[in-house]
Design a protein around this nucleic acid. Sequence first.
DNA 1: GATGAATGAGTGTTCATTCAT
DNA 2: GATGAATGAACACTCATTCAT
Lengths: 197, 197, 197, 197
Amino acid sequence: MKKRQNAELRKPDILKNYYQVILAEGVEGASIAKVAKRMKIHPSLIIHYFVTKDNMTVELVDYISKIYKRLFMDLKIETEDPVMWLDRLCDILLSEEWYNNTDISGDFSVISVSFRNRKIFAHLKRMYDEFISLITRELEQIAAPGSIKINDPAGKARLVVSIIEGYRHFKHFYIEAADSEGYRDEMKNTIKSIITG
Amino acid sequence: MKKRQNAELRKPDILKNYYQVILAEGVEGASIAKVAKRMKIHPSLIIHYFVTKDNMTVELVDYISKIYKRLFMDLKIETEDPVMWLDRLCDILLSEEWYNNTDISGDFSVISVSFRNRKIFAHLKRMYDEFISLITRELEQIAAPGSIKINDPAGKARLVVSIIEGYRHFKHFYIEAADSEGYRDEMKNTIKSIITG
Amino acid sequence: MKKRQNAELRKPDILKNYYQVILAEGVEGASIAKVAKRMKIHPSLIIHYFVTKDNMTVELVDYISKIYKRLFMDLKIETEDPVMWLDRLCDILLSEEWYNNTDISGDFSVISVSFRNRKIFAHLKRMYDEFISLITRELEQIAAPGSIKINDPAGKARLVVSIIEGYRHFKHFYIEAADSEGYRDEMKNTIKSIITG
Amino acid sequence: MKKRQNAELRKPDILKNYYQVILAEGVEGASIAKVAKRMKIHPSLIIHYFVTKDNMTVELVDYISKIYKRLFMDLKIETEDPVMWLDRLCDILLSEEWYNNTDISGDFSVISVSFRNRKIFAHLKRMYDEFISLITRELEQIAAPGSIKINDPAGKARLVVSIIEGYRHFKHFYIEAADSEGYRDEMKNTIKSIITG
DNA sequence: GATGAATGAGTGTTCATTCAT
DNA sequence: GATGAATGAACACTCATTCAT
C-alpha cells in the first residue's frame, strides 16, 4: 500500500508538513502526531527519521533557510544600471510578494523557540548571516561601477536586514492600514538613504 | 496553609508568574500546572480565576501592555531643549536598559501566538497603538517650539516603532557582536534622520 | 441583586433545574456546577441547600414522584360507565400526551442510578408502589358496579404498570415506526384483556 | 511486564472490563482510568485502541449485542411439538436464568445514554431489531406445522419483546416480592395469549 | 442566604518516545 | 522502511466539597 521511500525524499516531505502544522497551529500546537496525521503515516515513522522532535525542529530551520536562500537567489533584477538596481532591490524586499513568500508567522514561531534552544538559535543565526552576506554582495555590486558610493556595505546590509525585519514585524499588525502604500514608500526611502547615506 | 486572597491581588500575581514561565519555557512549554507549581498553589485555583488558559493569555497581554506603558510613562527626560530631548529619546529607545526591561523573548512568544489567536492579536495591536500614540505625542512636543520641524508626526512614530522592533528583533541574534555599539549609533542616526527628514 | 429566598421555594427550583440538566446531559453529564450555571447562582449555594449531590438526587426522585402523582390525579375521566371508564383509562396511559409528560429519558436516568444506590432504589420503589395503588383503586372503582369483573385488582395493576413500562421503553426505539398506531391499539387490547381476563 | 497483544484480543477484553465497571458504578461512574486500573494497563492504551471514550461506548453496545445474540442462538428447545415449543420459549424468556444473563442494570445504563447519543441509539436499535427477528423466526417455525395459528408474527414479536422489557424493568423493583412466581405465571399467560390471540 | 477562595481528586485526551514485529 | 503496542508524563479542565466572609 505505502510506497517505501528513503530518507532523502521523505525527510524534506516531513519537514514541509511540519512547517505547515506550525503555521496552522504554532509551535505550541505542533506535534509529531499531527504531522503524521497530515501525511497519513504513522508517528513512529517520523521518530524513525528524526529520532527526536527537537532534532526535527533544528532540521526545520535549515530547511527554511534553504528555501529562503533559493527564494533570494532566484530574484532576477533585469537592469545593469546601479541606481535602478538599488531601487529594484528595495522594491523587492518590501514587496507584497516577498512578504507573502517569507512566512512571518513561521519565522516568529521558530525565532521564539530560538530564545530557549541554543541549536535553533545557532542555525537561525547562520540563516541571518547568509542573508546579510547576500545583501552585502548586492550592495557591493551596486557600488562597483562607482556611480553610487556605499561605505561599509556589510554594516549597511545589517541595518537593512534589521529594518526589513521591523517592517515585516510591524506589518503584521498594520497590514490593512489605509495608507500601507505610503508607509512602504517611506520605508523604501529610509532604506535607500541608509544605504547611500 | 490557605492564604486567602482576592482576585484583585491574585490575578496579577498569577499573570506575573505565567509570564515568567513563558520566558523560561516559551509558549509551547508554559502550562497552568507549571505556573501553579511556581506559586505553590493548586492548578485549579488558576482556572478558578481565569476560567481558561486562553483567557489567561489574553489577560497576560493586557498585563504586559500596562507594564510597558508605565515603563514609558516613567521615563524622565530632564531637559527643555527640543534637540536634546530628541537625542535623549532615541538614546532611551535603543538603550540597553530599555532593551532589557522590554523582554523581547516574551514579546516574540505572545506575538507568535497572535498569528492564530484573534483576541491576542487585537489586544497586542492595541498595545502597539498606544505605544505609537505615546511616541507621537513626544514628537509633537519636540516640534512644538518650532526649532525642529516634524511632518506627519504620527506617520513618523509608526516608522520609529517599526525600526525599533527590527532593532530588537535583530539584536537578539547579534547581541554580542563586537561593534554592537557602532550598530546602535547607526540605528540612532537612522531614526533621527527619519524623524526630522 | 439576588433575591433572598428560603429553602421552601428554592429547593424545588433547584430540583427542577437539576432534572432539566439530567434530561439534557444524562446522569453522567449532570453536575452541580451545570445546575448552578443554569440558574445563575453559585454552586456553593446548591450545596448549602442539599449538603451533598447524592442527597439532591434522592430528593429529585421524590420531586419527580410528586409530579407524576399530581399528573395522574389530575386525570379527568368524564363518564360513569365502567366499560367506557376502562377504555378511557387505557387510552390515557398509552396516549402520546402521557408519554410526553412522563419523561422516559429522565426515568431511565434515575432508574439506572437506582441499581447502585439503595436510597434512590427505595424512593423509586415507593413511587411505583403509589402508581400501582392508584391504578388498583381505579380498577376497583371500575369493578364496583359489577358489570365488569376484575380478579385480584392489585395483581392486575402490577401487570398493567409493567406493560406500560415496556411500552414506553420500547417506544423509545420505535417511536417513528409507521404503524405505531396499530401497535398502540394492540397494546391497548392486551391491557384490557389482562385486566378483565 | 508488557504483554504484547493485538487489537483482536485486546479490544473485547477492554470492552468486557468496561462493561463490568459500568455494572459496578454506572455510566456516570465509569471512566477510562477505572477500566485501565482494573486491567492493570495504562489508560492511554485504551485510548490507543478506541481513540475516544464515546467510540468505546458505541463498540460496547455492539459487544453486548453479540453476546445477547449468541445467548439466544444457544438456546436449545428439545421438542418438535409446536405447543410445547411455544411454552418452552415463554419459559425461557421469563426465566431467572435469562434474567440474570441479560444484565438489566447494564441495559438501563446504555439505554439511558441512548437518549442523548444518536450512534448509541442506532446501534441499540439494531440490537432490538435483531432480537425481534429472532423471535419472529421462532414464531414462524411454531406456526409452520399449522396446529397453532399466528397472525402477523413480526408484530407479535414486537409485542412480546416490549412486554419482556417491561417485565425485566418491573422485576428490578419487585424482584423479592413474595408472589413473584405467580407474577411470572401471569406474565407467561399474557404473552402466550398475545401470540396466539 | 449567598458568594468567592481554595482544595485535591479525577476527567478524557495528547504527547514523545521505546520496542517488537 | 514501516506499523502497532505500550508506556508514563503531562495537559486543560471539571468536579464535589469546605471554609471564610
